[in-house]
């Protein structure tokens, strides 16, 4: 591997890592701020991917499909929080695990009823359906670069929202002491609903923009769920910064692992997780 190709693989790894961050950020948000273990996170990713596929085949445009689908997933998130999750905040994690595991089954069956079990491809938007030549025989698909751009923008927006806005201040306050925030006259219930909906929408959005790259198939969510938990655990539970670092780390490990040691590529990520946990049980950026 010469230097040019090393750089390209680096780009591949970063691009994959940024996408991972997008998927995992919703999980770490809900986990860190609300204390909810959401096993159904992958299902929302899957819902996003299927919405992107069905709406884009209906309207003929992935962009339109995404614009239509985002409000739908926000409504879905708010509805679920009001109906189900709200009742579990004070309960043990076990109840949340049971509920969200149940939701995985419900979403899988609904997906099978509504969309069927076939594998579907989603077309890359015409505007981004090009490749930039990098070397004499390799080009880079513009869509992958565009996704990286979107992920970076979202990461920045998330950082600003939580660290620099009044709403973010309330969210952080709610995370550290819910009762105190409530007695100060802040509608913490509304804030929780919003945070939950945001987490769901982030997962679904990741599913939507990744649909053209990964194609859409059943059980799409389960692989995503596992890798998301790996990200959250390596990064430190609830830390958005940690999620970013862990995503990039995993993206690079998986990319270079596939190329350098293809025989064991499937387990590299988990070895990495084990090493990090031995070294820092609370994760890279977790509070001990």
């Amino acid at each position: 591997m010469d230097f040019a190709f090393f750089l390209i693989q680096l780009l591949n790894g970063l691009q994959y890592g940024l996408l991972l961050f997008l998927v995992a950020s919703g999980l770490t948000l809900i986990f860190g701020i609300m204390g909810i273990i959401n096993l159904a996170h992958g299902s929302f990713y899957m819902v996003g991917a299927y919405l992107a596929w069905s709406l884009s085949s209906l309207t003929g445009s992935l962009t339109v499909a995404i614009l239509l689908a985002i409000p739908l997933t926000v409504i879905l998130g708010m509805g679920l929080e009001r109906l189900l999750f709200r009742h579990l905040y004070q309960r043990d994690h076990l109840y949340q695990v049971l509920l969200t595991y149940g939701l995985i089954l419900v979403f899988e069956e609904l997906r099978s009823l509504i969309w069927g079990d076939d594998v579907h491809g989603v077309a890359v938007p015409a505007l981004l359906n090009a490749s930039i030549p990098l070397t004499e025989n390799l080009s880079y698909p513009v869509y992958r670069l565009a996704i990286s751009g979107v992920c970076l923008l979202l990461a920045a927006a998330l950082y600003l929202l939580i660290q620099k806005t009044r709403l973010g201040m309330m969210i952080r306050a709610g995370a550290s002491n819910r009762d105190m925030v409530q007695s100060l006259g802040i509608d913490i219930k509304l804030i929780y609903t919003l945070v939950f909906a945001l987490g769901i929408a982030l997962a679904a959005f990741a599913g939507m923009i990744n649909a053209p790259l990964s194609s859409v198939f059943r059980n799409l969510g389960s692989h995503v769920l596992i890798i998301c938990f790996v990200v959250v655990v390596i990064g430190g539970i609830g830390s958005v910064k940690g999620a970013m670092a862990a995503s990039l780390l995993i993206g690079l490990a998986e990319t270079f692992g596939q190329v350098l040691v293809p025989e064991v590529a499937g387990m590299i990520v988990y070895v990495l997780m084990a090493v990090v946990l031995v070294w820092r049980p609370q994760g890279l950026f977790g509070k001990a």
């Binding site: 010469d2 190709f5 390209i8 691009q15 390799l138 190329v259």
Partner: peptide
């Protein structure tokens, strides 16, 4: 899995 990008880069190199 259908994530081929890293291996396609490897082929090009």
């Amino acid at each position: 899995q259908v994530e081929f990008q890293a291996l396609l880069t490897e082929i090009a190199s």
